[in-house]
């Protein structure tokens, strides 16, 4: 390869790459408002914590300026000077609110909020107080009760695990029980504390098992009897069916009896009428007899006949 060609290629590479780098650098500088006219505003903060020179100033999430200077005022407050490119100055008005945001993720920034873009432009001489939103401190504040609760739980656990604590006593007792268990052949022996007692209990249990078997057999028999009784009572030819037939028969007979009673009632009513007539007749007869007696008495009194003691009725 000819030397001139090689040098030409290298020269072209260096010049074009450097030109590209310079163009990029100029573009970055332009976009960073290096060549733009800047407007400066002054803000006031009670503390310089979280503030630094070069900190971005954002409007609607876009960087419109930077913190250009920080200084202490006579009263010990922090005076913040921000530089905003003139083209973005329209977003900084008299009514704008400035907030120092310290997010959990990312670096702190000053955020400008302008409710009324038509308000007059913020004067460079005016000093505007800045609010602070500290996400980290907010989180710490919210987490504080939780931390206290965890501390309390930890204290309780500490108390529980202290020497002489109830938990330790329980653990010691459990150890004793475990040891006893490992020494004895069974739980039963440990509970009674006596090997004979365990044997007696075992025998009793065996007897209970035998009794249970007997009871089981008896229950089976009763079951069988109950089944037969069921058939005898509730079956097609059972007592219940017969009783049912009898009841139906009785019901039919009752119906007939009702008719007879009705007739009897009617007859009784008739008889009552007849009885009344007989009473009237008897009354007439009585009155007639009485009149006759009175007549006979009058006759006896008038005529001397032998008096007979017995009076015969007509």
């Amino acid at each position: 390869m000819a030397r001139d060609t090689l040098q030409y290629k290298v020269g072209l590479f260096i010049v074009s790459t450097v030109a590209l780098i310079l163009a990029t650098a100029v573009l970055v500088a332009y976009k960073k408002d290096l060549f733009a006219d800047l407007a400066t505003y002054r803000l006031l903060s009670g503390s310089g914590e979280g503030l630094s020179q070069g900190m971005p100033v954002l409007f609607s999430g876009f960087e419109i300026g930077k913190v250009s200077a920080l200084e202490l005022s006579e009263k010990g407050e922090v005076l913040i000077t921000i530089s905003v490119a003139k083209k973005h100055a329209r977003w900084v008005r008299e009514t704008s609110a400035f907030t120092l945001e310290k997010p959990l993720v990312g670096s702190p920034r000053i955020v400008v909020k302008t409710e009324d873009p038509a308000a007059p432009e913020l004067s460079a001489d005016k000093i505007v107080p800045i609010k602070t939103i500290d996400d980290i401190n907010e989180v710490i504040k919210k987490a504080q009760p939780l931390v206290e609760r965890i501390q309390s739980v930890a204290d309780n656990v500490d108390k529980m695990t202290n020497e002489g604590s109830e938990l330790n006593k329980i653990i010691a007792d459990t150890r004793k029980i475990t040891k006893m268990l490992s020494d004895k052949k069974s739980l039963l022996e440990m509970a009674t504390g006596d090997k004979k007692g365990q044997e007696t209990l075992m025998r009793t249990l065996e007897q209970v098992a035998a009794i249970t078997a007997t009871v089981d057999t008896t229950v089976k028999r009763i079951d069988s009897m109950t089944a037969k009784a069921d058939e005898g009572v509730f079956g097609d030819k059972g007592s219940l069916a017969t009783v049912n037939n009898i009841l139906l028969d009785i019901e039919a007979k009752f119906k007939r009896l009702d008719a007879l009673i009705d007739n009897a009632v009617t007859m009784s009513a008739d008889l009552q009428g007849t009885t009344q007539d007989i009473n009237l007749l008897r009354k007439d007869v009585d009155e007639t007899v009485s009149s006759l007696r009175q007549l006979l008495q009058d006759v006896r009194n008038s005529l001397p006949f032998d008096q007979k003691k017995e009076i015969k009725l007509p």
Binding site: L27, K31, E63
Partner: peptide, 14 residues
């Protein structure tokens, strides 16, 4: 895009 990148690039980066 260029504005976002440019704002994030500091001169010392070069």
């Amino acid at each position: 895009y260029t504005e976002i990148i440019a704002k994030a690039i500091e001169y010392r980066y070069f």
